[in-house]
Each structure stands twice: as structure tokens, then as C-alpha cells.
């Protein structure tokens, strides 16, 4: 009895944090279980290494290279569907909130955390939302390049990730290399080509020090992973 009420409370608390209804959670789980996970296994043939490095529970920050709309979907598909509620892909508001349909779609299917990419000021601070999500125990998925690249090389990191890590000290940060996603579904394409895609999860790290050091460490870790290292 008491166990049930605790999960109920948790659910209520987390739904309050995401501003999502229980129905949206359920809908997202169904879509992942029935469509996205089978698609990743049977169509994309996703190969995963280092799955053991994924933290058992939040809060944590997962960051990856970005070249495709498949990136977020494939990352989310690594987790059991009951954990989708705690996973928040950080999404550019100017793209994923460009109209109410896109907004509803990305919030329902991917549980996005929209942030401002432009006109940043004290009051319009993208870190605020991310920090409060971390405080409520959620995990963030961040693409520090800030946009989708060609998939051939890692772009320069924007400063957001290192700001975030600096202000949320002690939170594990997990580098993830995404391979071939940009070949399967490049920018501008609508239909994916079933190239085998690969996800390499690196060891979680807890960087500290100056922002520039944090940034260098995280960029280096991802670059190593992309080049086939651990």
C-alpha cells in the first residue's frame, strides 16, 4: 500500500516538474515500446557498446555529437520505457517550439526541455530550466555543438554544457558517441536509409575546475570515443 502511494507521489512530483500529464507519459512509453524500439533493432540495427556506463538513475547529464534527428530517438531507446519520464532531451526552442504542433509533438514523444538559443539574458537564461530539472532528479540529454553537423567531424562545443556542469557540481556527465546517424537521416532528409548505426557510451565523469578546463575535458572525452577509444 505504502509503496504504491510513494510511486504515485513520485509520479505526481515528476509530472509536475515536466508539466506533463500521466497520459503523455503513457503515450510516449507505448510509442517507444511498439514502434521506436522495434524500428531501432530491426530497421536501423542499432549496435550499442558500453551500455553498462549508463547511470542507473538520475540526475545525470548525457552529451553527444549531433548530426541527425535519429540522435535523440536512438539515445532514448537505450533506456527502459519506464525511465523515459526522467529523461529530458534539451531542445532549441526556436526549432522545436516553432509552432504548437511541433511543440506538442516533441514534448509528447520526446519529453523535450525547450531552451532559448537566441536573445539570452539574465531573465531569459537557458540554464535555469536545466538546473531545476536536474534538481528534481531528471537526466538531461545535451548536444553541445548546438546544432546538427555533417556527421563527419565533431564541431566546436558551445559554452552551455560547461556553464551547466560548473553550476551543477558533482553530477555525473556521460559522453556518448553516435556513429552513422547522420548518414542514415541527414539534415534535410525525410526518409532514413538503414545504415547500421552505432552508439558508444563512455565512462561517466565528474569534471571540475575552470569552465575552460571542463569544456576541454568533455570535448576530449567525446572526441576519443568517436575515434573508437573508450
Amino acid at each position: 500500500m505504502s509503496a504504491t502511494s510513494t510511486t504515485e507521489e513520485n509520479r505526481a512530483a515528476s509530472s509536475a516538474a515536466t508539466g506533463r500529464s500521466v497520459w503523455a507519459d503513457l503515450f510516449q512509453r507505448l510509442i517507444f515500446a511498439l514502434a521506436i524500439k522495434p524500428f531501432m533493432i530491426l530497421f536501423i540495427g542499432l549496435r550499442v557498446s558500453g551500455r553498462r556506463h549508463l547511470p542507473e538513475k538520475g540526475p545525470f547529464i548525457l552529451y553527444a555529437n549531433h548530426s541527425s534527428h535519429l540522435d535523440t530517438v536512438s539515445l532514448l531507446s537505450l533506456f527502459p520505457t519506464r525511465r523515459l519520464r526522467e529523461l529530458r532531451p534539451v531542445a532549441a526552442a526556436d526549432y522545436f517550439e516553432r509552432n504548437r504542433w511541433v511543440s506538442m509533438f516533441s514534448r509528447t514523444f520526446f519529453n523535450t526541455l525547450p531552451i532559448a538559443r537566441r536573445d539570452i539574458s539574465q531573465t531569459n537564461n537557458p540554464l535555469k530550466g536545466m538546473l531545476s530539472a536536474i534538481e528534481s532528479g531528471q537526466a538531461l540529454i545535451i548536444f553541445p555543438e548546438g546544432t546538427r553537423g555533417s556527421g563527419e567531424s565533431l564541431g566546436a562545443f558551445r559554452s552551455g554544457l560547461s556553464h551547466l556542469v560548473e553550476q551543477a557540481p558533482g553530477i555525473p556527465v556521460v559522453p556518448v558517441a553516435l556513429v552513422n546517424m547522420g548518414r542514415s537521416l541527414p539534415k534535410g532528409a525525410l526518409i532514413p536509409v538503414p545504415f547500421f548505426c552505432e552508439i558508444r557510451v563512455g565512462e561517466p565523469r565528474v569534471p571540475s575546475g575552470a569552465r575552460s578546463e571542463i569544456r576541454r575535458e568533455l570535448e576530449g572525452a567525446l572526441r576519443n570515443l568517436l575515434e573508437g577509444g573508450r
Binding site: G45, N180, V193, P194, F195, F196
Partner: peptide, 9 residues
């Protein structure tokens, strides 16, 4: 399909 995937990749 799977053989073609392996080749094209």
C-alpha cells in the same frame, strides 16, 4: 534486407 544493410554500411 539485412545483407544489403551490411554491404551498404
Amino acid at each position: 534486407f539485412w545483407a544489403m544493410k551490411e554491404y551498404v554500411t
